[in-house]
Simulated scan of single mutants.
Amino acid sequence: MDIDKLIMVALEKVNKKIEDSRISKCADEGLPMTMLFNIKLELEKMLAVLNKSKYLPSYPRFLLDYPENDLINFLLDVSYKYKKMT
């Protein structure tokens, strides 16, 4: 899969998680809403730049502080592939 498509999938997953959190309005053991918004902004910038020499996301180092789940694993994978493929 191309890196731009992978980033788009990550954006969709983050947007869905944000929307789900807004609808349920309950505390989630996952990522806080502010972190989801920051990740969304970083993914959008990654998609616009597509060059690790010009932009590297900072979200991966903060994700390591949270319990592992599918979204976190996917976002870490996207970051790794972004560094590798751009």
Results as ranks from 00 to 15, higher is better:
I18H: 07
K54M: 11
D77M: 08
L31M: 05
D28F: 00
L50K: 12
L64M: 13
M85K: 11
N38F: 08
Y80D: 14
E12V: 05
Y82M: 01
T86F: 09
L71C: 03
S79R: 07
D65P: 00
T86A: 07
D70K: 09
K45D: 01
L36Y: 06
M33I: 10
F62K: 15
L64S: 14
M33S: 13
G30A: 02
I72R: 08
L64P: 05
R22K: 15
V78S: 01
M8K: 15
I3A: 01
M8P: 00
L47R: 11
K83Y: 07
Y55F: 14
L43C: 04
L75I: 07
G30H: 05
V14H: 00
E12A: 09
L50Q: 13
A27Y: 11
K83E: 15
K83S: 14
I7F: 03
M85C: 08
L36D: 04
A48M: 04
K16S: 12
R22L: 09
L75D: 05
P67N: 11
L36F: 04
K84L: 13
Y82C: 04
I3S: 07
V78Y: 07
N69I: 02
A27W: 02
I39E: 03
S21P: 00
D70E: 14
N73S: 08
D65S: 10
P60F: 07
K17I: 11
A48N: 14
L43G: 03
D77K: 12
A27I: 13
T86W: 03
L36A: 07
D70Y: 09
L6G: 00
K25D: 12
K52A: 11
L31D: 03
L63P: 01
K5T: 01
M8G: 04
L56R: 11
G30D: 05
V9C: 04
K84V: 09
I3L: 09
N73I: 09
K16N: 10
P57R: 02
I23C: 15
D20R: 15
N69L: 03
D2M: 09
D70I: 12
I72P: 00
V9I: 14
E29D: 13
R61K: 10
L50G: 05
T34M: 00
R61M: 08
I23F: 14
K52D: 08
M1K: 12
D2I: 14
K81H: 12
I3C: 10
K16F: 04
L64E: 15
E29A: 13
F74C: 01
K81W: 14
